[in-house]
Amino acid sequence: MSQKEWPLWEVFIRSKQGLDHKHVGSLHAADAEMAIQNARDVYTRRLEGVSIWVVESKHVHASNPDDAAAFYEPANDKIYRHPTFYTVPDSIKHM
């Protein structure tokens, strides 16, 4: 065996029906099946979840921190992109 370490997986848990899966952490596993079992044992011990997603970490592509200025700062002075100019009727909750 040339590869001694199992690959890293990112774990996403849905805490309740209707909510999104949220990233909770990562773990090592040989394949997807083991990753789901490990996620069950590591991340759902205290009733945290009703559904588990795992994805190998190498498949996650991240933005480069060096691009932060170019990526995010231009949005700072464009408040008109927030839909705050509408009046929300009183009967609409959870907006």
Partner: peptide
Amino acid sequence: PILEQDLAMAN
């Protein structure tokens, strides 16, 4: 042998 299986056996 690894953290994840250590937890699995403890569970």
